[in-house]
Computed example of a mutant assay.
Amino acid sequence: MAISKGPLLEELVRAYFSKQGFYAIRSVPFSFEGNDVTDIDVWLYSRQTASVRIKAIVDVKNKRSPKAYERILWVKGLQSILKCDRAIIATTDENPGLAKFAHENNISVLSKGFLDRLDKKINVDARLSIEEFNLAIQENYNHKHDGDWIKVLSDTKSALASLGSFTAFNKAMMAFHFFADRMEVRSQYSNQLQRCLLSAASLACIALDGALEKLTFQDAVFRFEGVKDGITYGDSDGKFRQSLELAFRAISENVINGKTLASQAKENINQELSKIRADLIGEYFAREHNAQSLFSAAKELDEKAFAKESAAVELSIEARSILGVFADFVRVKRSILPIGRNLSAASEPAFEPQKSPETEATAADERIEKSLQGKLL
C-alpha cells in the first residue's frame, strides 16, 4: 500500500522517536467530554526513571505551504491543554527565522534538513503503518457492525491523551476484553484480532505506568490500595467515593426508611464494584519489579502488533506475564492469547492476589533505575 507523503513523514518521525527510547504512536484523537477536538500526529511517552515520566506531542506537516509559524502557536496551545512536558514540530518549511521563533516559545523543531537525513537512515517499511494496520482490519467487511474495531482502538488511544491514567487503563481493558472475546468466535480474522489485542494491551501498559508514577515512593501496601481505588473509582482522588457517601447520607436523612434504603444501596454498589477485580491488578503491580516492566512491555507489544509478520509472536516473559494478568482481570481464557497459542505458555498459573502486599515493599532508593529509558532532543 502506497502511503501519501503526510502520513509517511509521520511514520518517519514516529520511528525516530521510538529509536530514541520513546513509546511513540500516531493519529491520537484528543476529545473533551465526548466532543472530538483535534488529532495529535505523534504522541510520545517516556519512563525516564522510576519517578519521572515525560509526555510530548509532535505536530508533523509535509505540505508545500506548511505554515510553520501558525503550527508553533497551535502546538504550544495544545501542549498547555494536555499538560505535556514538551512540544515539537516537524516541518518542511525552510524559513530561517522559524527556529528562533520556536526556541523563544520553548518548542523543538525537526527541520527539513534533519528530516531528509532521517529518511536516509530509517526504514519505515520495517513495520505496518497505521493505514496498513487499518486496511488489514477492513478485510473483515463487518468490522463496523461488529462494534467498529478501528473505533475501539481509536477511542482507547484518545483516552490515553484525553483522560486520567486510571480511566485510560480501564478503557484499554475494555478494548482488550472486546478483542479477546472475538478471538474465540472470529477465528477467520485471528491475525487482525491478535494485532488489535496486542495494541490494546500496549496502551493499557502505558496508562497504568503513568498512573503508578505518583505512587513510586510509597510502600507496597499504599501502592496496592492506590491502584485498587484508582481502577475502581477512576482518577478522582477519592472524589467519586465522597460523592457516593454524600448520596447515601442524603438518602438516609431525607427519605422515609432512608437508613435502610441507603444501607441496601451501599451494599449493592459495593457488590458491583467488587466484581471489577481491581485487587488483582493492584497486587501484581504493587510489586516494583512488575511495575518496572510496564514500559518495556508496552513498546514490545506495540512492535508485535504492527510487525509485518505476525504468524509467530515471540514475547518476553515479562510481556507474557502481563498479558496473562490482563486476561485474568477481564476473565478471558489465556489459551486464546499469543502467550498460549504461539509460546506454549498457557500452562502458566493464573495470578491470584496475596494477602500480604507489604512483604513486597522495597526501599525508595532501590526503585530508581540506573539507566534512562528515553531521552529528549
Score class of each variant (00 low, 15 high):
K214D: 05
F30G: 07
P66M: 12
F30W: 15
T359K: 15
Q48C: 06
D41I: 06
T216K: 03
A361E: 07
G164N: 03
W43C: 03
F30E: 04
G164S: 06
R195T: 01
N134P: 04
I339V: 10
D119N: 15
F179I: 11
K259E: 15
S274M: 05
I3C: 01
K375M: 10
D155L: 12
F240Y: 12
K120L: 11
W74K: 10
R117P: 00
D59W: 07
S165I: 01
K61G: 01
C84Y: 08
L246Q: 14
Q48F: 01
Q138S: 14
K259Q: 10
F217G: 09
V221Y: 02
E132D: 11
G238N: 13
C84P: 02
F179K: 11
L9C: 10
G230S: 06
D155T: 08
G340C: 07
V52G: 00
N290A: 14
G340H: 13
L280H: 03
E288S: 11
I368K: 13
A298E: 02
A211T: 00
Q354D: 12
S158C: 14
I130D: 05
A200N: 07
D181S: 12
L208Y: 00
N35W: 04
K375N: 02
V227S: 06
A99H: 09
I231Q: 02
Q218W: 09
Q188L: 08
K67P: 01
S165A: 13
D146T: 08
G374D: 02
Y141P: 02
D219A: 06
T232L: 10
I251R: 13
D41C: 05
D279R: 05
R14K: 15
L82V: 08
D36P: 04
P7H: 15
I40C: 03
A319I: 02
K355G: 10
A298H: 09
L193Q: 07
A350G: 09
D237W: 02
N105Q: 12
